[in-house]
Amino acid sequence: MQLDNLSHLAVFAAVARLGSFRKAAAELSLSASAASYAVRTLEDRLGVGLFNRTTRSVSLTEAGRHLLERLQPALGSVSSALEEMNLFRASPSGTLRINTFRDAALVVVAPLVERFLRMYPDIQLDIVSDDGLVDIVGMGFDVGIRYEESVPEDMVAVPVGPEQRFVVIGSPAYIARRGEPKHPDDLMRHDCIRYRFRSGAFYKWELAKDGVQLQLDVPGRLSVGDSELILRAALDGVALGFLPEHKVRALVAEGKLVCVLEDWCPPMAGMMMYYPRQRQMTSALRAFIDLARAA
């Protein structure tokens, strides 16, 4: 295979994965016009269209989907072969792409960034904060960070970060207006802020005490998909929220929020860093996991 064919196939795979010529170009350090030219040249050589293009979206044609399915194993083998060359280097190199939700980015990833980049000057970090659940393989990430219950079963998961505790919080004005819940059953008569996943499912509040574990589909007129919106609404007295304790600790100390049902909010396992079981671990990922576990 000619080298330019291989580079054009790599551009095609990146556009297919990201659904955007602009994003693929940025990832590959190309101009958008160069990425578009590479795909057009590939289409001309193959004699078929690989993408349906509109001003707002890019999607694979049937031929494009077939090519991508056949191409991914081969590109994976090429990537693995290149990664193995790191065995001959003095230190790891390459780009490490991390997908994490916002709280984990602040609690787990941010404290490691300066030290990691200083220790490994040949590694580039690409960190994407996303509170929704994503397919890290399909989106081209090396590793994801989520709570244990959100980690797909076919992934290798490694505990990272400190122990966590979720707490039920409300503003003093809300508590004065609606009263303080004394038992989890009382939440069913309160307004609660519901967290909605991208899938459309609602997160069930997890409470536990003396061996009794509850998962409550709490009622509420406000549903959001962002923890910052939960915090804002709770501060404004809209309803009760359920958030990580580290996120609200200072506001509780200042009297802006009140914790309720504290005896039903035990500590829980921390966050999990996860990666595909079938994929060879890159030297950059191994270095990051080692640093995170030692922190």
Rank of each mutant, 00 (worst) to 15 (best):
L3H: 15
N5V: 13
L6A: 13
V15A: 02
V15C: 04
L18M: 09
L18V: 03
K23H: 05
A26E: 12
A26V: 12
S29K: 14
S31D: 10
S31W: 08
A32P: 07
A38V: 01
T41E: 09
T41G: 12
V48W: 06
V48G: 00
R56S: 15
L60Q: 02
T61S: 08
A63G: 05
A63M: 14
H66W: 13
L67E: 00
Q72E: 12
Q72F: 07
A74N: 10
G76L: 11
S77R: 12
L82R: 02
E83N: 08
M85Y: 08
R89E: 10
S91Y: 08
P92L: 06
S93L: 07
G94M: 02
N99D: 11
T100H: 07
T100G: 00
F101A: 04
R102H: 11
R102M: 12
D103A: 13
D103S: 12
A105C: 09
V108E: 01
L125S: 01
V134G: 07
D135R: 02
G138N: 03
G140N: 04
F141D: 00
I145R: 08
R146G: 00
V156D: 02
V158P: 06
P159E: 04
F166I: 10
A173T: 14
I175F: 04
R178P: 06
L187Y: 01
E206L: 12
A208R: 14
A208N: 02
G211W: 00
L214A: 00
L214F: 02
Q215I: 06
G220A: 09
G220H: 07
L222E: 14
S223C: 07
S227Y: 11
L229T: 11
I230K: 01
I230M: 11
L231I: 03
L231P: 00
L235T: 07
A239C: 03
F242N: 08
F242I: 07
F242S: 03
H246N: 15
K247I: 08
V248L: 00
L251Q: 11
V252H: 00
E254D: 15
E254K: 13
V258E: 04
V258K: 15
L261D: 02
M268A: 13
A269M: 11
P276K: 06
T282M: 07
S283K: 13
S283M: 12
L285W: 01
F288S: 00
I289F: 01
D290F: 07
A292W: 03
A295S: 14
